[in-house]
Amino acid sequence: MKIAVEPGLVDRARGGELVALEALLRAVQGPLYNLAVRMLGRREDAQDATQEILLKITTHLGSWRGDAAFGTWAWSVASHHLLNLVTRSPRQAEVSFETLAERLDAGSAYAEKLLQGDRGVAASPEDHLDARRTALACTQAMLMCLDRPQRLAYVLDVIFGLESPEAAAVQGITPAAHRQRLARARSAVHGFMSQRCGLVTDGAPCRCARQVPAKRLAQSRGQMPPGLEVSSAELEDAEQGLRELVAMGDAAAVMRGAPAYAAPQAMLQGIRLVVEHSGVLRQ
């Protein structure tokens, strides 16, 4: 995922042109919102964080000197904010690999109990949709098992495809330090998936469809832990890519299979109101 900005747009925004500022914020809000979603695990937290990041970008435009690409600078502003953010959620979405493994084992056991004597029932279209949603929620849960610095390194490099030097610059660390973080994150995530995920390893015990009954039961009881909701439109847009990536049987490919999450338009409207009333830019 890249941040593409028209030439001259930043200079026009810094010169006080409100239309240019809006265009600049529109160019960055989607990628930054998607980073926030993957770092925080909940769309509500990601929306709040992205609004704060956009305001920081607006008020600190003068600190960008052009010695790095504007996209790299914007990623850096967002990354530092997300690394130090205290979310407003009453329950943190972060889990451990041990806790996630226990949850998946319990889901598989519940499905096995339900299926006894009922193995000839075909899966419905709703079942397939819920299985796909479960796969996306599970990959996000794996990200939340990493500490924030490792999660950031993994998302920037593996999922968003930033080259290592740029990913290191975004984090404010050396390329060698980035590679070390990335190696630890890869080992944890891919090791977990190779042992448990049926999308990666044929003999692994966990199948997305087997997690659906337990998920529905937890939802009916109001016991579903906070997680990432995926809209039908986003899921439909990503479906072909998901099938192709899953067919590769590669852990990194499966992790890249999440859709591009649509940023709420209300975010940019809110930022515009703040900018118009703050005197940050002259009209």
Rank of each mutant, 00 (worst) to 15 (best):
Arg184Gly: 07
Ile173Gln: 14
His190Ile: 00
Ala169Glu: 15
Gly203Arg: 14
Cys206Met: 10
Cys208Ile: 01
His178Ala: 10
Ser194Trp: 08
Gly191Pro: 03
Leu199Ser: 09
Val189Tyr: 01
Val200Pro: 00
Met193His: 05
Ser194Tyr: 05
Arg184Tyr: 04
Gln171Asp: 14
Arg179His: 11
Met193Tyr: 04
Gln195Met: 10
Ala204Met: 09
Ser194Met: 12
Thr201Asp: 12
Gly172Asn: 10
Val200Met: 00
Ser187Arg: 11
Thr201Gly: 06
Gln180Trp: 08
Arg184Glu: 11
Met193Pro: 04
Ala188His: 03
Phe192Glu: 04
Gly203Lys: 15
Ala177Cys: 09
Arg184Lys: 13
Arg181Lys: 14
Cys208Phe: 04
Arg184Val: 09
Pro205Arg: 07
Ala204Trp: 06
Ser194Val: 12
Ala188Asn: 01
Ile173Gly: 10
Arg207Tyr: 04
Gly198Ala: 09
Val189Trp: 00
His190Cys: 03
Val170Met: 08
Ala209His: 01
Asp202Cys: 09
Ala176Asp: 14
Phe192Met: 02
Ala204Pro: 00
Ile173Trp: 06
Phe192Asn: 03
Cys208Ala: 13
Asp202Pro: 05
Phe192Ser: 01
Arg196Pro: 00
Asp202Arg: 15
Ala183Trp: 07
Cys206Glu: 11
Arg207Asn: 06
Asp202Leu: 15
Arg181Tyr: 12
Gln180Thr: 15
Gly191Gln: 07
Pro175Cys: 12
Ala177Asn: 10
Gly198Gln: 08
Arg179Trp: 07
Gly191Asn: 08
Cys206Gln: 11
Gln180His: 15
Arg207Trp: 03
Cys197Gly: 01
Gln180Gly: 10
Ala204Val: 05
Ser187Ile: 01
Ala176Glu: 14
Gly191Ala: 06
Ser187Asn: 11
Cys197Asn: 11
Arg179Gly: 15
Arg196Gln: 14
Phe192Cys: 02
Ala177Lys: 11
Pro205Phe: 04
Arg184Cys: 04
Arg179Pro: 05
Gly198Asp: 06
His190Val: 00
Asp202Gly: 11
Cys208Asn: 09
Thr174Asp: 13
Gln171Ile: 02
Ala204Leu: 03
Arg184Asn: 09
Gly198Ile: 05
Pro175Leu: 08
Arg186Thr: 03
Gly172Ile: 03
Gln195Asp: 13
Ile173Arg: 13
Arg196Cys: 04
Arg210Ala: 09
His190Thr: 01
Cys206Asp: 11
Ala183Gln: 11
Arg179Ile: 01
Ala169Pro: 03
Arg186Leu: 02
Pro175Tyr: 05
Thr174Cys: 09
Ala185Cys: 09
Val170Glu: 02
Arg207His: 08
Ser194Asp: 12
Arg186Cys: 03
His178Trp: 03
Val170Asn: 01
Ala209Arg: 03
Ala209Ser: 06
Ala177His: 10
Ala185Gly: 12
Ala183His: 11
Gln195Ile: 11
Ala176Met: 13
Gly198Phe: 08
Cys206Ile: 12
Ala177Arg: 14
Ala183Ile: 02
Leu199Trp: 12
Arg184Thr: 07
